[in-house]
Design a protein around this nucleic acid. Structure first.
Lengths: 105, 105
DNA sequence: ACCATATTTCGATGATTAGCTAAATTTCAA
DNA sequence: TTGAAATTTAGCTAATCATCGAAATATGGT
C-alpha cells in the first residue's frame, strides 16, 4: 500500500499506468513517450513492478508490461473509502448529498 | 494534482489526513499520535497545506488543521476515473469486467 | 513587562530518488 | 558464432526528503 502510493507519486509512472490502460506495451514502446533515457524508464518500471501495479512477461528480447488494474483499484479506492469517498459512474451523475459538481475532461 | 500525490506518498501524512477525518485538530493534538519531533510534523503539515489538502486557522497560540475532503476526493477519484474505476459500496461487489452502464442506486 | 505555551523557521545531516552514460545480459537471426 | 536489438545492471551525481535540535515568533495570562 505504501509502495503503491510511492509509485504513484511520480508523474512519469502515473503516465505509464495510463498508457498501459489501453493494453500491454513493451518497455521500449512505453519509453518512446518520454524524454528520459531507457535505463531511467527501466527504473520506473521496476518501481511499478515492486508496487505490484504491473505485470511483466518476457517475449523474446522484449518485455511486455501490463496494468494490474485490480491492484490499483484496491489501493486507490480502498484508501478513498477510508474517507467515505465513493467513485461516481464515469461521466454524468445526479442527485447527491453534495451538489457541487464540476465534471470536466 | 502532482502535489497531492506527493503528499499522499508519505504514511505519516496519510495518517494525519485520516485523523482529520474525525474533525479539525490542533497541530499539537495531531503530533501526539506520532513518534517524530514537532518540527518534523510541522513540515508534514506544510506539505499537506501546499497540496491544498488541509486548511489551517490560527486560534490563539494554536493552529487548527482541518481536512479539505473535496480536494482529496477530486484528486483521488479523478485519477481513479481515468482508469474507469468506480468507488463501490464498501466490501463486496460482483461481476463487472467492463464498466459500462452501471446503475447508481 | 515577563513568562509559559504552541508552532514555525533555521541550519544541518543522512537517506532516498531520478537522472545519466557505459557496460552487461539475453535472445534471435544470419 | 558473430552481431544486432531490447532491456537491465552498475556506478555515479545532483536534487529532494525526512528528520533532528536550537532558536525565533506569536499569543495569552499574570
Amino acid at each position: 500500500m505504501n509502495t503503491v502510493f510511492k509509485a504513484l507519486a511520480d508523474p512519469t509512472r502515473r503516465k505509464v499506468l495510463q498508457l498501459l490502460r489501453q493494453g500491454p506495451r513493451s518497455a521500449g514502446a512505453l519509453a518512446e513517450h518520454f524524454a528520459v533515457s531507457k535505463p531511467t524508464m527501466s527504473a520506473h518500471f521496476s518501481v511499478l513492478r515492486e508496487a505490484d501495479l504491473v505485470d511483466s512477461v518476457k517475449q523474446g528480447t522484449t518485455v511486455i508490461y501490463s496494468l494490474k488494474l485490480s491492484v490499483l483499484e484496491e489501493s486507490l479506492l480502498g484508501f478513498a473509502q477510508l474517507f467515505g469517498l465513493q467513485g461516481g459512474d464515469t461521466p454524468a451523475r445526479a442527485a447527491d448529498p453534495t451538489p457541487d459538481e464540476e465534471q470536466i475532461r
